[in-house]
Design a protein around this nucleic acid. Sequence first.
DNA 1: TATATTTGCACCCAAAAGGGTATAAAATGA
DNA 2: TCATTTTATACCCTTTTGGGTGCAAATATA
Lengths: 69, 69
Amino acid sequence: MNLANFVKTKRKSVKLTQPELAEKAGVGLRFIRELEQGKQSVRLDKVNQVLQLFGYQVGAVPQTSNQQS
Amino acid sequence: MNLANFVKTKRKSVKLTQPELAEKAGVGLRFIRELEQGKQSVRLDKVNQVLQLFGYQVGAVPQTSNQQS
DNA sequence: TATATTTGCACCCAAAAGGGTATAAAATGA
DNA sequence: TCATTTTATACCCTTTTGGGTGCAAATATA
């Protein structure tokens, strides 16, 4: 589970659309879309704005890890 | 342990200076410094370039977690 | 004490992010 | 099937990043 799928899965689990998530997180709609599509060069602070809605944050995880899901 | 301290600690554990780490990771020295100082708006791909030297990558971790160390 | 390392600050600059918007495509539901 | 919702892609624009560099001060380290 990478960050992109993590966000997508979490968003769907709380029944939010991308525009709704963007609004709640205080980021742009385009950012949510690029994030869920796996864009690598996103900004860390924006990612954290999204993750904290789900009670998560960006951290270092072992490369072999499946991260949280 | 936040990302900044994680990188700093890992770097010191393998006895690298900031310039050496920057060179190995393929990022600028200024980036390493800003990362270790906790700058929030860094780019995720650059963070990953650094973390993978230590066998780690960026992932979602619970907010209450101490992340990996 | 010296030496090496780290930090902080300031420039300049090219490249990219991210926001907004509009349109096209895909998915979902009646 | 058709209509609606959701998602994806493209274009502008402004702001910021990140790299390079230099220098001074603070902090370790031998």
